[in-house]
């Protein structure tokens, strides 16, 4: 999983893609409108493939599509805002961070020493235990 900043960046990029997709949808699937009574909607020329030809959807489907796209936009926006609010360490300044890192470094050193000591103790206790067990078996 990517870190939060990258997630945020991706989310913003996706928002941009959704903008384009929404406009594309509205641009290509809208209904044809008569501006005056005399207008006739041209019969579609099936033989010619026009790339920017409008391909109307039935009104209810078009509305549903619009609604879905709009909802997705809002959802993405909310996602972005959520990601912003959970960015790591918003409340820490760089100085705080440096101090924290130094403190942690010191703590780590101590802990490492303790760990090494514990490992030594473990080895000792193991030899003792082994000795005891051997004593039991031998007689």
């Amino acid at each position: 999983m990517a870190d939060r900043l990258t997630q945020l960046q991706d989310a913003v990029d996706q928002l941009g893609t959704q903008f384009v997709a929404s406009i594309h949808f509205v641009n290509n699937r809208h209904d044809l409108q008569k501006l005056s009574q005399k207008d006739i909607i041209r019969e579609k020329d099936e033989t010619k493939q026009d790339p920017i030809e409008v391909n109307p959807l039935p009104p209810d489907e078009f509305k549903a599509g619009q609604r879905e796209l709009a909802q997705d936009l809002i959802l993405k926006e909310q996602q972005i805002e959520f990601l912003i609010s959970v960015l790591p360490g918003l409340e820490n300044s760089e100085k705080d961070q440096e101090e924290m890192i130094k403190q942690l470094e010191a703590d780590l050193k101590v802990a490492e020493e303790q760990r090494k000591q514990a490992l030594k103790d473990k080895a000792e206790i193991l030899t003792t235990l082994e000795g005891v067990i051997r004593q039991i078996i031998r007689p």
């Binding site: 790591p88 760089e94 961070q97 942690l104 780590l108 802990a111 760990r115 490992l119 473990k122 206790i125």
Partner: peptide, 30 residues
Amino acid sequence: PHQARESLILMMQDQLEKSRAETKGIMDMK
């Protein structure tokens, strides 16, 4: 850069915890 430092802090805390847990485990066993 801020996030990088933040991740470093998290990793260090993690390691510290692990190390302490290990020490504690050994001590308990001892």
